[in-house]
């Protein structure tokens, strides 16, 4: 009961029912350890490329509106193993915002129940690492939504392609080690470089599909450079991130 009360305090409008609670427990017990990930070779690895749309760019105050995701195994993008969902909104986002992702007010209001939507998405992800471009934004948005609706942020393993890509591929700034690092290139730069066409930019699912294609190119590059398992790929991105921050 104390838990329910706490959830109310953090703004969860509707408490979870028994089934939802057991689903959440199953999800939470399914977080992989680094040692698990080092045992998975890149040819067998399963990833979930994901992208979110939100009511704005303020990662701490804006609301999660939509999630799009597609599974990658090895160097295969599994087009049929994909997912997209719009979360039911209590407040419709601004007109300017709607013009970006094109999810209308009506669609926002008739979206899925957020609890069900998040649980289904997390089950879809399973114990696979999530992959995004500037992934911190997607990660925090999702964790905040999980915190709000499920009572816990449900932390997943994430891979940020904005860090992995420049770590593996020379850009015009020079070699991977010596290049001056700033915020790096935007996703569009990489999409253009690899001639990846995205049917509708700023649609979560379409962007996820673009991200997935960039991912398989990078995984293949990583493998050539001797980066052989999932853990090593994650480390590679983290190292670059650390270097960039310095």
């Amino acid at each position: 009961m104390a838990m329910e009360w706490l959830r109310h305090l953090f703004g969860n409008p509707v408490p979870l029912d028994d089934l939802q609670r057991s689903r959440l427990r199953a999800i939470e017990s399914n977080i992989p350890l680094p040692s698990d990930l080092s045992g998975i070779s890149l040819t067998q690895a399963r990833w979930v490329a994901a992208d979110v749309e939100s009511s704005g760019l303020d990662v701490w105050n804006d609301q999660l509106i939509a999630i799009g995701a597609v599974v990658v195994t090895g160097t295969n993008v599994q087009l049929g193993e994909s997912h997209e969902v719009v979360l039911k909104q209590t407040r419709i986002s601004s007109q300017d915002n709607i013009l970006i992702h094109r999810i209308s007010g009506r669609d926002q209001q008739s979206g899925e129940d957020p609890v069900e939507a998040l649980l289904t998405f997390l089950e879809f992800v399973g114990n696979s690492p999530l992959v995004g471009y500037h992934a911190n934004f997607d990660r925090i948005m999702l964790e905040r939504a999980c915190k709000k609706y499920l009572g816990t942020p449900v932390e997943k393993v994430w891979l940020d392609l904005a860090a992995l890509a420049p770590a593996l591929v020379d850009t015009e700034h020079g070699s991977a080690k010596t290049r001056a690092v700033g915020r790096g290139h935007p996703l569009d730069w990489w999409l253009e470089r690899y001639r990846i066409e995205v049917s509708a930019r700023h649609n979560a699912a379409a962007d996820a599909l673009g991200t997935a294609q960039l991912l398989v190119i990078l995984l293949s590059t990583a493998e050539k450079q001797g980066v052989a398992n999932v853990e090593a790929v994650l480390e590679c991105a983290k190292d670059y991130e650390w270097l960039r921050r310095r």
Partner: peptide, 17 residues
């Protein structure tokens, strides 16, 4: 996990084909 495939992704694929 019987989630429906993403209509956006399928539509993009269909359009390319």
């Amino acid at each position: 996990m019987a989630v429906q495939p993403s209509p956006t992704i399928l539509a993009a694929t269909v359009a390319e084909l």
